[in-house]
Amino acid sequence: MNALTMPARPRATPHEPGTPLVAVENVTLRYRTEKAKITATRNVSFSVNSGDRFVLLGPSGCGKSTLLKAVGGYLTPEEGRITVGGRQVKAPGADRMMVFQEFDQLLPWKTVLGNVMFPQLVTGKLSPKEAEAKARHYIEKVGLTRAIDNYPHMLSGGMKQRVSIARGMAMEPDVLLMDEPFAALDALTRRTCQDELLRLWDETRFTVLFVTHSIAEAIKIGNRILLLSPHPGRVKAEVEGVDDVSAADGSAARLEREIHDLLFADEPEDH
């Protein structure tokens, strides 16, 4: 048997009274290309509770990244509305920190410490001294203290993503928005980064909205998974209680198969 058995994790905080932390209601997103207006998602609704590890899962073209960017405030829904903490999302803001897939999301002109401090300082959230203390704390959490004065170009891909995560967490946002943060990493590094994200979550119980196209990653990361179907993106199903499956007794593999069959049910086997 392999050693992928996960530490037992308590379930995320159950439904809080009142409104959910992130509420996406009947959202239709369209973006303009040179020739046409493309519908990315149609009539999508879901809600994320505080402490959730909510995964948007679907094949390419299901609008999951576009949806995440809409929650981030980078584009406005044509129909429906998005609220975070009860406030309607109108523009990007530091209450929703993004972690991107691309390695160039770090500012190359700032050190690791500078990168993590940057949002604290430009938003005026903390004084330089407090920002530094907080940044050092989160850099230590992601295990990069010895690289703290390095510039991003001296870091490996996995280290860069960990700095981005530290930068996002240090702002202590309402929700951390992660757009396939580990997709560009090699398989070994990806696995370490996933484990580390879960460990960090265990420590601080932040809320995360995570986009991926990997079913295995969705099961590993999430406690709830929203399945989206492509062209245009619509909600196909929602998986709850993902924490209850484990790799040890094969229930994770079973869930993976079920999700796969569900996602590709009406697709011809052409790949």
């Binding site: 981030g72 980078y74 523009a91 990007p92 920190m97 430009v122 938003t123």
Partner: peptide, 8 residues
């Protein structure tokens, strides 16, 4: 997008 994220 990172810059906009911080409200700049």
């Amino acid at each position: 997008m990172v810059g906009q994220n911080y409200g700049l």
